[in-house]
Design a protein around this nucleic acid. Structure first.
Length: 99
DNA sequence: TAGCTGACGCAAA
DNA sequence: ATTTGCGCCAGCT
């Protein structure tokens, strides 16, 4: 339950125009190996206050969306995020982590 | 309480 | 490059 809350909070905290991977979200939540549960939680928890569309796969690809992938793509595009952009963002954060 | 599921991720073939 | 299999964790039935 705590984990769930943490995950939702992290997702809510994702700034506009940015995307995070499930893995990243889990890591921020404090459970780096629970990226599985992250998707599960988002799936069951239908909350418009949570920009689940900013959560993408490790390669920046969209995995799923409660309202349909089409809507998700639209939202991301509206925020200036493209499939390539998400990939770059992920790469960037990965590089930052490595440093 | 125990088992199954899933919006994942990575390695191997 | 693409597909298949396995490992992982929390949530749900």
């Amino acid at each position: 339950m705590t984990f769930k809350k943490r995950v939702l909070l992290v997702v809510k905290k994702i700034p506009r125009g940015k995307v995070l991977t499930y893995q990243n979200v889990a890591r921020k939540a404090g459970f780096p190996r629970a990226y599985r549960a992250v998707g599960n939680i988002l799936n069951k928890n239908f909350d418009p206050a949570i920009p689940c569309h900013r959560v993408v796969g490790s390669d920046g690809s969209l995995r799923g969306f409660n309202r349909g992938l089409a809507q998700k793509k639209k939202l991301l595009k509206k925020e200036g995020i493209d499939l390539k952009k998400s990939g770059e963002l992920i790469c960037e954060m990965a590089r930052k982590k490595m440093h």
